[in-house]
Amino acid sequence: MKPKSILLLFSPLFCLLFCGYGAFSQTTNTPELYLEPIFKVNYGDATADKPQSKSWTNVYGQWLVVGDEDGPKLLKKDASGWTSQSAVNQAWHSLPSKADVWSKGDDAYIVLVGECALNVVQITYSHHNKQYEHQWKSYLPIPQDCNSIETATITQDSKNQYWVCADMNEKIMVWHSSNGSDWSDPFTLADDINKDDISLIVGLKNQVSVIWSNQNTQSINERIHYDGDAPNQWSELVVVQEGDNNADDHLNATVFENGEIAMVTKNSVDKINQPQFVLRVRDKKGKWTNIPYEILVAGKSPSRPIINHVESGKIVEVHTVRNREINRYYISVNEIVRKKNGWEFRELIQLKTKINGKNGDASSSKASFLPDEAKLIFFSDNLGNVYAFDLDTLL
């Protein structure tokens, strides 16, 4: 069931489009669905953190990495549900739990984030044993003056070089590896960020892009590395947007088949009747367009948006909403529609749980969804429950 379309003429939507906002079409009868957990760990918010992609689908099945108190856990979906992959998980014992996954073919490379630690592990699918097997783990060099790292992401470029970016102290840093296991010392891309800011690395055609928030300058920024250049050779600063409190530490992106990026971010405006999120679209030439959306209303706090798309063209945005009036949370699933005169955001369903505590931290795959495969999103609560939903029922 999808929300009914609404008329543009003489409507609030018409005004929003021509005022430069993305239009958010939310009906009063948006379907609701209560979900049961697919798995439970001894670790709250097991699908954190915001820019990270923790799942992937391939010819061998559907996979997910979640946090746990004794290290990350690899899960696989099978006929009985989501099951723990004990051999891999034993090899990951005591490693940091926040994970971001880069999967390609039989291999998956995963960066694991601790307070002042970054590990990269490789797992390879064994056709003989019909399961992933742990290959190795490596430690990225961390400067001795490190106070904290909030999050990190990983990608691979067209020259098969590996890259990790992370926030550390008040800096944005990037590490490089030619083989995925031996990592360089970090190169500093920015040294003036707020301690609350984070970054995201995205692999594009013949280049990688690092994007980060800077709440000190109220800006979203980017620097680019062209494949084949020296690891420390990066572009000058690109300012995606600056001013008007448009920066916050919420970033998530998807890369379209034509080379464009769509990124969703939260801003710091935090005012009723003003947009709380910004959709940022980067064309193939590197030009950014910023579309504010998700008008903040009394009693509801939207947060932590993520974005992905189906290769057929449909775009989906997912975020957490806290209903402050009853102190309950739900996951809002939306379709983003590109129109000739703007963008429209249609709420498709609200995903709810039966717990009274916090839930959120939506996550999906780094790769786009294929039309004929499952289109899974995940989230978790602060009690250790992990939830899943297949968007294929909506898109």
Rank of each mutant, 00 (worst) to 15 (best):
M1Q: 05
K4S: 11
S5V: 03
L8Y: 12
L17T: 03
G20R: 15
S25H: 14
T28D: 12
T30Q: 08
P31F: 07
E32Q: 08
E36A: 13
I38W: 14
V41Y: 06
G44I: 01
K50L: 06
W56G: 04
N58P: 01
V65T: 06
V66L: 06
E69H: 12
L74P: 05
A79D: 12
A79F: 10
A79H: 13
G81R: 14
A87F: 09
A99T: 10
S103P: 04
K104M: 15
E115I: 07
E115S: 10
Q131Y: 12
Y132V: 03
Y132W: 06
Y132S: 13
E133D: 13
Y139A: 10
Y139R: 11
I142K: 10
C146K: 14
E150G: 11
T155D: 09
Y162I: 04
K171H: 13
V174Q: 00
H176Y: 15
D182R: 10
W183Y: 07
W183K: 15
I198C: 00
L200G: 00
K205N: 14
S209W: 05
W212M: 05
N216K: 15
N221Y: 00
N221K: 11
H225D: 04
Y226L: 04
A230Q: 13
V238Q: 14
V239I: 14
D249I: 03
A253F: 00
F256E: 15
M263F: 00
V264I: 11
K266Q: 05
N273D: 05
Q274T: 01
Q274N: 03
V278N: 11
R282H: 08
K284N: 05
K284T: 11
G286D: 02
W288Y: 08
E294V: 09
A298P: 02
S303H: 10
S303T: 11
P305I: 02
V310K: 12
H319G: 08
H319P: 00
H319I: 02
E325L: 12
K352F: 00
N356C: 01
N359G: 04
D361I: 14
S363K: 15
S365Y: 09
K366T: 02
S380H: 13
N382I: 07
N385E: 13
D392F: 07
L394F: 06
